[in-house]
Write a protein that binds this DNA or RNA. Structure first.
Lengths: 235, 235
DNA sequence: ACCTGAACACCGTTCAAGT
DNA sequence: ACCTGAACACCGTTCAAGT
């Protein structure tokens, strides 16, 4: 990669020299950008680096360790360019959308690490920005902590879900077939509402669904504000 | 299991005779009730049945096929005893809680199948009950479909998340250690709010967190009702 | 018709050995 | 100090063979 001056055609393994956490993480992100289901195995990372797969154990305790660092990098990347808005709702919405979008650029990382807490720089940036927005709204202390946790885990769980759907890929289409087939064996008359709406529901893309649920959540938070302070109401 | 009359001490493998989808699914649920991380492999299911692991392929196309049937059974089990309330909010809340609780009795199934659509009996029961509650609230057609999808995927994604946490088990405790350790290397002064609330947030158990987020979501839906019909308002 | 068992192409991880 | 490579205990799945 550095100098392709001489014999550029032999695709044999580069010598693995100067591995480091940074170098390894970069290679992982290169692999994780793809939507292939198992792109992040040690063996594939090793090949990408031209190193023996087990060399990674010199720099990371185990796969979990690697994954947490990877997840934090991805979150931090999603936070790049974030600027708080004057509106706290707009800030919350922005954060909840950009964090998810950041993760979904690396679906592998999202599925594998969505339920882990990284406790590294990127996560702290996200938490601090969320809490700042909630403070501006008037939520403090324990109340702010509860709402932040609800929002963060809403985002993380749904992001893991979405990443899983992306990685399933073509299998989702198989699902559509199964849908039609499996209806044959079931007494459809018992489920009139479900049968009537089934295609309308299937049409909704996951992104739109997340956005819509997020708006419901934000409305719920806003409504809570009304209850708390009783000074201002928003429809 | 059927008759322990003679030689009950030899734990050698029962002969595998009369395997069927039903028999296999029962064995799977027995295994999946545990919190062991990899309890649902074909090899372990085979051992539980006293059959060769590959015998399962005679009854299920692949692991995915098995998982979908398993997931639908678990959902159906969660729906047992459901009775719609006069209050549509109470009905929605009940459905969103019982579906998750049903899945979490079989964490293996929940992690592996949360993002799949089963299109079998249990799922239809759930969808029908949700739509019925939404209709009673006054949501119809496309609007009901959108809200149902938001609710269902909120529940499914969070349930997959929760099941993952359960399966992580002791690793969560490791996280707590990591939390303290990793704070050493970071300039804490840059994240005052995050640092101040970190322990308050960590204390919130996942169940409570889900319940709280669910209330926010329900409040958001109720608020939307106000916008729609303009006839009745609820704080 | 149904079950078995060897085999294939994968996993994460450990450990003695090389340099 | 860092990387290698054989090995271990696992995966899901295929396929020829048994009964």
């Amino acid at each position: 990669m550095e100098s392709t001056a001489n014999g550029a055609r032999t695709p044999r393994r580069r010598r693995a020299q100067g591995l480091s956490r940074e170098v390894i993480l970069d290679a992982c992100l290169r692999l994780a950008a793809e939507t292939a289901p198992d792109a992040l195995s040690f063996r594939k990372i090793g090949k990408e680096l031209g190193a023996d797969p087990t060399a990674l154990y010199r720099h990371f305790a185990d796969k979990d360790d690697l994954l947490l660092s990877l997840a934090d990098r991805v979150l931090a990347r999603g936070m790049e360019g974030y600027a708080p808005s004057v509106s706290w709702v707009a800030s919350l919405r922005d954060l909840m959308l950009r964090a998810r979008a950041g993760f979904l650029e690396y679906p592998q990382v999202a599925t594998l690490a969505a339920l882990r807490v990284t406790r590294q720089e990127g996560e702290l940036q996200f938490v601090e920005a969320m809490l700042a927005a909630l403070h501006r709204a008037g939520f403090k202390g324990k109340d702010a902590a509860r709402i932040h946790r609800a929002c963060a885990d809403f985002m993380l769980s749904w992001t893991g879900f979405s990443a899983g759907l992306l990685l399933l890929g073509e299998k989702s289409s198989q699902d559509d077939r199964a849908w039609v087939e499996s209806y044959a064996g079931i007494s459809v008359g018992d489920y009139p509402l479900a049968v009537a709406s089934v295609s309308a529901m299937a049409e909704i893309p996951d992104d739109e669904n997340y956005t819509f649920a997020l708006e419901l959540l934000l409305a719920g938070i806003a409504a809570r504000l009304g209850v708390e302070s009783l000074t201002e109401m928003n429809t």
